[in-house]
Design a protein around this nucleic acid. Sequence first.
DNA 1: CTGAAAGCGCTAACAT
DNA 2: ATGTTAGCGCTTTCAG
Lengths: 352, 352
Amino acid sequence: MSNDKEVTIYDIAKKLNISPATVSRGLQDHPSISKKTKKRIADMVAEMGYRSNHFARNLRQQQTQTIGVIVHELNSHFITSVLAGIEKVTTEAGYDLIIAHSSESAVKEASNARNLFHKRVDGLIASLSFDTQNLDHFKAFTDKGVPIVFFDRVEKDDSNTVVVIDNSRAGYLATEHLVSQGCRRIAHITSSLNRNVYADRFKGYSEALAAHGLPVLKKLLVVGDLSESAGVNAARKVLAMKPRPDGAFVTNDFVAAVFMRTLKESGVRVPQDLKIVGFNNDAIAKLIEPTLTTVNYPGIDIGQIAARNLIDQIRGVAEPNQSIIVPSDLIVRGSSLEKPAHGAGRSHRPAP
Amino acid sequence: MSNDKEVTIYDIAKKLNISPATVSRGLQDHPSISKKTKKRIADMVAEMGYRSNHFARNLRQQQTQTIGVIVHELNSHFITSVLAGIEKVTTEAGYDLIIAHSSESAVKEASNARNLFHKRVDGLIASLSFDTQNLDHFKAFTDKGVPIVFFDRVEKDDSNTVVVIDNSRAGYLATEHLVSQGCRRIAHITSSLNRNVYADRFKGYSEALAAHGLPVLKKLLVVGDLSESAGVNAARKVLAMKPRPDGAFVTNDFVAAVFMRTLKESGVRVPQDLKIVGFNNDAIAKLIEPTLTTVNYPGIDIGQIAARNLIDQIRGVAEPNQSIIVPSDLIVRGSSLEKPAHGAGRSHRPAP
DNA sequence: CTGAAAGCGCTAACAT
DNA sequence: ATGTTAGCGCTTTCAG
């Protein structure tokens, strides 16, 4: 059925005996077109099954109405929340989204950036890959005046806006919480300190220890990636430390979960022998035993704010070069409580 | 710097004293252009920082080089794997991706479909939402000859291809495994039986029970959605069943994890008192205690196969209306083993 | 092997 | 309030 040619504004203009320009204006709800004509156009559009041609429009207007997104991975609750937030805002504003992911590789990130640049996105939202060292591959955008908003994994320079949480403060609070639960020897399991997020969390961790008169020991620091084996390795290292730490601040929930599992397999009791705080508030945090104390990372908010700001920049109503801090907070669960919660860390009634 | 006008093939033609047509052909590696000219063009392109204009090209060719994807949610390991698989194939083939998600709503799914239709995607890959009843909102695509490939949650009709696993067989194997571990009263925690995936798994479950001389009891069937509360509710219902089931086949790992947690909070021992098999092989399956026996759902493969088939259809080298079955298999872990594995379901050495 | 020229569908001056 | 017209940048006949 109707595998015919595509209907254009010329077709509907002809049918209505008006000019294509009038149709175009009518479609855009232009003020200088009479209500009556608009109605006739709308009716004919419906009748003929017209759909506008984005390419002609974009070619003409030199705008793509498309926003590019580069993320390091799309396998975490945090990232998908951010994407959901971005999608909500951009869809409402009539922008398309092209989502690319770098698989934590700076090379792939650069290639994604090049690709999106060629696709002429109107703006870019990005979280840097693990091993990205500089922002050179984004220079083409700034040179052309295409705005960029970085979130989470960021690197500040003079031309872009960043949306982040206060990682330093979050790290401080997480660590202080462990101290308040009686920990005196707190390991820090994290990832590359070249990345702002991990560097800042480490800073918070160090400051909290110092504030409570505890030494910051290099040997308590374990740096790895975000894989399962990183969690296993971290546990092995912690097990080998003498004296053994009585707490651990792990900057990723998945790694924290693996870390905890591995410790328990070796007979370490959590939280009695060792208390753990994670980061991100992933779904697993509530499912492992004990449930995991963690830092809530408001992905949806971050996504929405980043998208909103970017669109404002595209429209010229927002300045670039802002730093936006989104609030986050510590969610205390069983893995860090001095008096362990019963069972899985929530109240329960024993079976009769 | 260089916030100037965009370079076009005319600019590079002028510089080279050749015609734009030659430049266009050179860029496409057209056979009838001399090596030398191609080289000159390539050099000038690099020198002037030319980037091709997709809109002019698409306008001319009446092709968007874009594939639409509609998924129900993007919060599961399975879905993100599928997306990764799709992305790999489409990127290599030079297609863009527009990803939309229906949030499990048929209405939103229809609106996504309309949107993608207007954006004139060259093809569509979709997994149906929870409450989608028919394929009417995809009719526009088939009418225009735009191919569609459905995966996972599908509804077969005469014009589309589907990529699925053999859910019936998977359900059979999962159930039979529980029987082999001594279960005689196996509850089935699942979702709407109107969806093919759940209907087929239920079929396999029923057949496996029948094959082993066990009755299929309606009261052992618990239907819910895929939320946390669904897992809690399922556990409550199972706890209330008399006699209590000794096994459960849960068609979703997340729900299975919540189900297990809730049971354990009520004093039920897993696997001793009740054995559990999940579905999907999400990351949590290896992190909860005991580790979860589950059905591996090869998302990457499904995504790649779906994308490859769609592109072949777009290019006219594949028939629509195929059913492609991707292999899947049961991964046995601690939650279903008659002799419970020690500790967290993996071998371990006690701490010295 | 290369060039000339038309046209994809739309929008925005510039008329009227 | 509506019409005329040019042109966005590219591809692709058709001619050489």
